Amino acid sequence: MTRTQWFKHRWFKLLWIVPAAVAALVFVVLAAQWVRDLAPVRAFLEQYPGESELPADAPVGFPAWLAWQHFLSSFFLLLIIRTGWTVRTNKRPAAHWTRQNSGVLRTRNPPTRISLDLWLHLSLDALWVLNGIVFYVLIFATGQWLRLVPIHWDVFPNALSAALQYASLNWPTEDGWVNYNSLQLLAYFTVVFIASPLAIVSGLRMSGAWPRAAARLNAIYPIRLARAVHLPVMIFFVGFIVVHVTLVLATGALRNLNHMYAARSEDSWVGFWFFAASLVVMAVAWVGLRPVVLRPIAALTGSVTRR
């Protein structure tokens, strides 16, 4: 490999990216620790400790159904990200799928051959949306939405306070079993009520289910707009997952895992083993979703042709 080729190689770029990221992280931590020592900032942190008060009738703890919803959402979202990236980067799909339909659906949207990768992506999308509908119904029926929706304006200065505490590596005092800190609240609200709907409406516009003959509707919502939204939303989800998992493990792993995987408030290892089992399931699905497995399943709803 010549010197020019080495400079263009992706590993050379990584050699610069990693030290730069570490240096930036160290700078942020030191800057946050310095800022926290300033008198006005100390007064700000005392006034806004990082948590906004919940209504008196807000539920405490996590029911078992929420633990299952959390796992299923994570499972489908992980595979959606994987298949979405595969659709974007795979130039030679191993197989293609054409749906079987008739009547009005065939007249409005004639069958179009798509890659097996895209078929899997859309199928996972449908399962994720179905799971999301169940989630929305349950959180509003049980009052869990009160823990996810900001209802006081002080959530914003409290979120800034929590961010400063995280950045300085002096974690905010919290008990997620009772109440999220304000930064968590805004992050979860964004995921549930902003990013997820954006992913759905942009994905629907790009799918074969969208009515192609609706000229006025297509002019109002052009496909280029959907494409401009869909990829950034995926990048947001990836970033959220990385930060979320990191903080879960760094701010009391056993307690946090028990909250969301065992629906209990304790420091036992029960939640960890549920979490470990979920990782095994995700890994098996990640490796196992191959054309040889997918072809007979896809053939149940359409015709599958090899490359």
Results as ranks from 00 to 15, higher is better:
A214N: 13
Y48M: 03
L122W: 08
A228E: 10
I114V: 13
W65I: 10
R307T: 13
V137S: 11
D125A: 12
V149M: 15
P197I: 05
R205K: 15
M206Y: 09
T305F: 06
A58Q: 08
T142P: 03
M206G: 08
Y180W: 09
L30K: 08
A276T: 04
V178A: 02
L77E: 08
P110L: 06
A195E: 13
F189P: 02
L79E: 03
S161I: 01
P19E: 01
G103E: 06
I80N: 00
G271V: 00
V26T: 08
L72V: 13
A228R: 14
G103D: 05
A20F: 07
I80R: 00
T173Q: 11
R306D: 15
A167G: 04
V304R: 00
W273N: 13
S123E: 09
G271C: 03
F7R: 10
F7D: 05
H244G: 05
D154P: 00
L79R: 00
L164C: 02
Y136L: 15
V229S: 10
K8P: 00
W34S: 14
K13W: 09
R307E: 14
L146S: 01
A95K: 02
A141E: 11
A56P: 06
A299C: 05
I194N: 04
P63Y: 12
V270M: 07
L66E: 04
P19T: 00
E46I: 04
R10D: 02
V238F: 10
W97E: 00
N256W: 06
T107H: 13
V243K: 09
L78E: 05
V201I: 15
T4N: 08
R224M: 14
A262C: 11
D175H: 03
F7Y: 08
V87K: 09
W286Y: 15
Y188D: 06
W11P: 00
N158L: 00
V201N: 11
Q144P: 01
E46T: 09
A21V: 12
A21P: 00
T305Y: 05
P291D: 02
P197V: 08
L54N: 10
L247I: 14
Q5E: 04
Y188C: 02
T251N: 11
A299H: 03
L169S: 03
R42Y: 04
I235Q: 12
R113F: 02
A24I: 14
T112H: 14
Q33A: 02
R3C: 06
L118Y: 11
W153A: 14
L138M: 15
L148I: 06
R290D: 10
E51Y: 07
